[in-house]
Design a protein around this nucleic acid. Structure first.
Lengths: 340, 340
DNA sequence: TTTCAACACGAAAACGTTTTCGAAAGGTTT
DNA sequence: AAACCTTTCGAAAACGTTTTCGTGTTGAAA
């Protein structure tokens, strides 16, 4: 077993000082070509690579980005990580991933853990519990210490920092509008409880478009689902008790569940019922029938978030303080679950 | 903006030495209760937390695990990460994730990057290109330096280290056997090219069970799919030209594609055609009909891999050198795509 | 009064870098 | 021969910890 070689060892071996070795390897003109070449050859032979930890300590920069998300087993979040990793890689950064499991406490612990020197900045999406509690002291703390933070998707207006989102409200508006344009009137909404920021916004978009078309809002058609557990039950209830033309779901899971339940009742898709879902993930693409979705380009969100963070990191202490919120455009991807 | 406070600053502020501060915070008996309490109060007030980088440098331990996988936008890999993260978290470790994008070069670069002090060990699954080239010098290098490595799923026998896999061959055997037990004879296999280790093993299991039942192997029924691009095309060819009773697919994607193509041709599932797939992911659960799968418990694999790595890390230099290969059991999850 | 132990604390090294500054050696100019 | 410049290198500080060892003070025992 050959342990990693350090400057000190090279110096000792060649009988020169550590400074000479360091300078030689960085091609300093201070060093004569003789010794420079000698050191470089030796270093190459022993495959010397500077120790990242020592560099981090010296430069006070780790070149790593901390990512904190609620879940990784979620296609959307996985795509965002993928996007972040792409630009991080291009810029010589590493990413260190922590999962909050939708828990406030885990989010805080992870953040404090990483904030103690492990990362230069954060990219994160808030856990449900954090959004519910509206307690952002851990974020504020980190921001106060001068570490940049970029929030995406699940954000809060109470936190001053860069953000990347889609225009949830507009997307919901347009998707619902699409359904209305097909002559559908009784449109149900499958959404989450209101404290989830995106759920709330999507609900607002839905309400607005109904209002703009003079369609009366029927509260019975708005199903707020707290946990995935009671998803089936609540949707079943809707299908049994209400006659509806279409469904707008705030995620794929609700959509595919509704779709399967409807089909099992003999309801024809899209003839009797149209379905549109947020998040263009795996399920929509491979379900039968395939589902019309609002694409939420995770890769692009991730890339954008990483770009914003790195830009701020390399800006040094310019202290722009001028935080931006980037909106990633969405597209309606029309598939088999809606009438053409 | 209040930057992070250090021992030195506290020392200066309280007019004591750095050592005194450090010892006070670690409750050393060397320090009088007076100063100890004073220092602790001050530290708490200024929310002092030791700097991880400095600790890493001193202890020569980073308490982070490097994960290198081909892709993250793959449900299976996402679940493995999730499993790793669980035990890592329990043991006070962080995980730093790098993606190889199935590229040998990226795998090497990422590995060298992380090996220079950033992590204490690695958990990884080989990229396709690496498996094809059979070039493992980067892994060997790291192992020689004394960093533990745990391979999962896509492994190689040429590398001596801990491993976590499922018994791909046995699982394929049993799944095919299940199909045969339902009276099905003409069973097609949708697999990958042979250099992907798991593809090869699953193919072997398929071949063995046919042999054991005295069923002649028809090479026309074995479809080796290189890239997802020509997936449709090749499967279509199979369905057009051969009459088959069942399909065993080495992943969900092949299975759902076959399923959809078959249905579009009026073939009834499972009456006319049964389908079984490896990897119990999202697609199988939500496709219509739902797909019978061989569960490949990613969480459990991740947890096991992390446990093995951490055990070796904490073992210090015991140098067991006795590498283990853990087999995670699989289950056949019977759903609608196979006759009952 | 001397000696010794206990107590409380500080100096310094170590981890592996980079960088600033100083200095020795050699050569060149007056 | 004196003064000065250039070349080439090394010592040391710095990043933030922890830990070993040394040291000064105090009080008690001899």
């Amino acid at each position: 077993m050959r342990r990693k070689v350090t400057l000190k060892q090279i110096a000792k071996e060649l009988d020169v000082s550590i400074s000479t070795v360091s300078k030689s390897l960085r091609d300093s003109p201070e060093i004569s070509e003789d010794t420079r070449l000698k050191v470089q050859a030796f270093a190459k032979l022993y495959n010397y690579k500077p120790n990242n930890i020592a560099l981090s300590l010296k430069n006070k920069k780790t070149k790593t980005i901390g990512i904190i998300i609620p879940e990784i087993v979620h296609h959307f979040f996985a795509t965002v990580i993928s996007g972040i990793e792409q630009v991080a890689n291009e810029c010589g950064y590493n990413v260190i991933v922590c999962l909050s499991d939708e828990s406030f406490d885990k989010e805080v612990i992870n953040m404090e853990m990483l904030a103690n020197g492990s990362t230069d900045g954060f990219i994160m999406s808030l856990s449900k519990e954090t959004q519910q509690k509206k307690d952002f002291h851990h974020l504020q703390e980190v921001i106060n210490q001068g570490m940049p933070v970029v929030l995406f998707d699940r954000i809060s207006n109470d936190i001053l920092c860069d953000k990347v989102i889609i225009d949830d409200q507009l997307a919901a508006y347009e998707a619902t509008n699409f359904l209305i344009s097909k002559g559908l009137k009784k449109i149900a909404l499958l959404t989450t409880v209101d404290y989830v920021s995106v759920g709330k916004l999507r609900t607002d978009g839905y309400l607005n478009v109904l209002h703009d078309h003079g369609i009366e809002v029927d509260e019975n058609l708005i199903i707020r689902i707290e946990d995935t557990e009671h998803c089936d039950e609540k949707i079943n209830e809707l299908l049994e008790n209400q006659s509806i033309d279409a469904i707008l779901a705030v995620n794929e899971l609700f959509a595919v569940t509704a779709l399967k339940l409807a089909m099992s009742k003999g309801i024809k898709i899209p003839e009797d019922l149209s379905v549109v879902a947020f998040t263009d993930g795996i399920i929509s693409k491979y379900s039968t029938p395939t589902i019309t979705t609002i694409s939420q380009n995770g890769i692009k969100m991730g890339r954008k978030a990483a770009e914003m963070l790195i830009k701020r990191l390399e800006l040094e202490d310019e202290e722009d303080e001028h935080y931006k919120t980037e909106i990633i455009e969405t597209n309606l991807i029309i598939r088999e679950s809606t009438k053409s």
